[in-house]
Amino acid sequence: MIKEWATVVSWQNGVALVSCDVKAACGSCASRAGCGSRVLNKLGPQTTHTLQVPSEQPLVAGQKVELGIAEGSLLGSAMLVYLTPLAGLFVLGGLFQMLFGTDLAAMCGAALGGVGGFLLARGYSQRLADREAWQPVILNVALAPDQLRVESLSSEAR
């Protein structure tokens, strides 16, 4: 189970709307200049993801929850997203090369196969998203923000 903490945005009728922060590149390894994660994090302006998660327990805005998702579903979705366009690229590129015998035809077939594989993955991922095993679940619930109070004594009171 892969776990991540999220913040509750709202809760209504047994469904919690939670927000997860996108992890920035860590910057602790030596390959900062060639790190693909670092480059991808800089490209997108999105810094949070919002998810709807079923929760029978009432939650309040600002409360932290620990979400979990099965490794199998995460690996399956990653394979679908990355391997389907790659397989389409190779299959149609090879097929066009055999049929037409030119590099230009192979390049066009590869482009069509890659785009077709992407569209196939996009359509199939909608069906997979409805499966219960592929949905994130709430594992732990932290205290509500108004239930925790921290008091510190000033230096004058000591």
Rank of each mutant, 00 (worst) to 15 (best):
M79E: 12
S73I: 00
L99E: 15
F90P: 11
M79T: 12
L89K: 03
V81P: 00
G62E: 03
V91R: 08
A70H: 10
G88H: 07
A70I: 10
L80M: 14
E66F: 01
G76L: 06
L67R: 00
S77I: 06
L92S: 03
A87M: 12
E71S: 03
T84D: 08
L75Q: 01
F96T: 07
Q97G: 14
G62S: 03
A70D: 15
M98C: 13
L89H: 02
K64H: 08
F96E: 13
P85H: 09
L75H: 04
T84R: 11
G93T: 14
F100A: 15
E66G: 01
G76M: 07
Q97S: 15
M79A: 15
E71W: 02
S73F: 00
A78D: 06
E71Q: 05
L95E: 04
Q63Y: 03
A70N: 05
L74I: 00
M79C: 15
Q97K: 12
V91T: 12
G72Y: 10
G62N: 04
Y82R: 09
V65P: 07
M98A: 15
G94K: 01
G101I: 09
V81G: 13
A78T: 02
L74D: 03
F90S: 14
M79R: 13
G76P: 09
L89E: 13
A87Y: 00
L99P: 11
Y82Q: 13
G94S: 15
L95W: 04
L86F: 14
L99S: 12
F90Y: 07
G76Q: 06
L83N: 07
L74E: 10
F100E: 14
G93E: 07
G72C: 05
D103M: 14
L80V: 08
E71C: 08
L89D: 08
L74W: 04
D103F: 13
G76S: 10
E71K: 09
D103C: 04
V81C: 10
M79Q: 11
K64T: 02
L92Y: 01
G88T: 03
V81L: 13
M98R: 12
L80I: 11
F96A: 14
L95D: 08
G94N: 10
L86T: 13
P85W: 03
S73L: 03
